[in-house]
């Protein structure tokens, strides 16, 4: 978890750096990019919301468990691209997507819960 957070920080710094580099051209685009650097997925009522999330390369996605029951966030590929520990209520997991692609994932405790992150 801690490692992922520091990666998130790095990613944010990178996006900021790019923003500074391009100063004077399109300030509004810069702030939009800053906002895009992290995206949220809520785990609520045994489902991921949004089920499919599309993000730009470099985005850190943060999952938050809002249920009274623990869940996990595990990619369906093998070997696993990402795999959270068990998230109890209000616990978070984050992962930074550095490569374009489609990343399907599920809750390994309640496998009917599935979602995907599309990185462009």
């Amino acid at each position: 978890m801690r490692r992922s957070v520091s990666i998130a920080g790095l990613a944010a710094a990178l996006v900021l750096g790019i923003g500074v580099w391009g100063t004077g051209q399109k300030g509004s685009v810069t702030s939009a990019q800053e906002k895009m650097s992290t995206m949220e997925v809520r785990i609520d009522n045994f489902s991921f919301g949004p089920v499919a999330l599309t993000v730009p390369v470099g985005t850190t996605v943060i999952w938050t468990n809002r249920d009274d029951i623990p869940h996990t966030v595990v990619s369906t590929d093998d070997p696993k691209t990402f795999k959270s520990k068990v998230l109890d209520t209000d616990e978070k997991f984050s992962f930074s997507f550095s490569k374009a692609g489609t990343y399907p994932y599920f809750c390994s405790i309640h496998p009917k819960m599935t979602g995907k992150v599309i990185v462009q």
């Binding site: 399907p104 994932y105 599920f106 390994s108 405790i109 496998p111 009917k112």
Partner: peptide, 10 residues
């Protein structure tokens, strides 16, 4: 029947 559960499965 709770081990190695597959995405989308039972």
């Amino acid at each position: 029947n709770v081990m190695n559960l597959k995405a989308g499965g039972l």
